[in-house]
Simulated assay, not measured.
Amino acid sequence: MMRIFLFLATNLAVLIIASITLKLLGVDRFTGQNYGSLLVFCAVFGFAGSLVSLFISKWMAKMSTGTQIITQPQTRHEQWLLQTVEQLSREAGIKMPEVGIFPAYESNAFATGWNKNDALVAVSQGLLERFSPDEVRAVLAHEIGHVANGDMVTLALIQGVVNTFVMFFARIFGNFVDKAIFKNEDGHGIGYFIATIFAELVLGILASIIVMWFSRKREFKADEAGARLAGTGAMIAALQRLRAESEVPVQMPDSLTAFGINGGLKHGLAGLFMTHPPLEDRIEALRALR
Rank of each mutant, 00 (worst) to 15 (best):
Q68A: 09
G126K: 04
F273G: 14
N175W: 03
K266I: 04
L157A: 01
A288E: 06
A195F: 01
A270M: 12
K23M: 13
L242R: 02
E185Y: 15
M152K: 00
P103A: 10
F173L: 11
K183D: 15
E129Q: 13
A270D: 15
I158S: 00
A141S: 04
S64A: 12
R29K: 08
R171F: 07
S255H: 12
F30N: 04
R282D: 01
E129R: 15
I197G: 07
Y105P: 03
Q33M: 10
F182S: 05
F259M: 09
L203Y: 03
L24H: 10
E185C: 12
D134I: 15
L12I: 14
R218C: 01
A13R: 01
V139R: 00
W114D: 03
L127W: 02
L24E: 14
L12A: 15
F41H: 00
M274N: 10
L39F: 07
F165V: 12
G271F: 05
G32C: 14
Q125M: 06
L201Y: 12
K62L: 06
L157G: 01
Q83F: 00
T75H: 04
M63H: 13
G126V: 06
R29F: 10
T275D: 07
A270C: 07
H267P: 09
D28R: 06
H146D: 04
F193Q: 08
V202K: 05
E280R: 01
I172S: 09
I4L: 14
A119E: 03
N184R: 09
S37K: 10
I172N: 13
L22F: 05
Q251F: 14
Q68M: 11
A109T: 02
S37E: 13
S208I: 09
H77C: 11
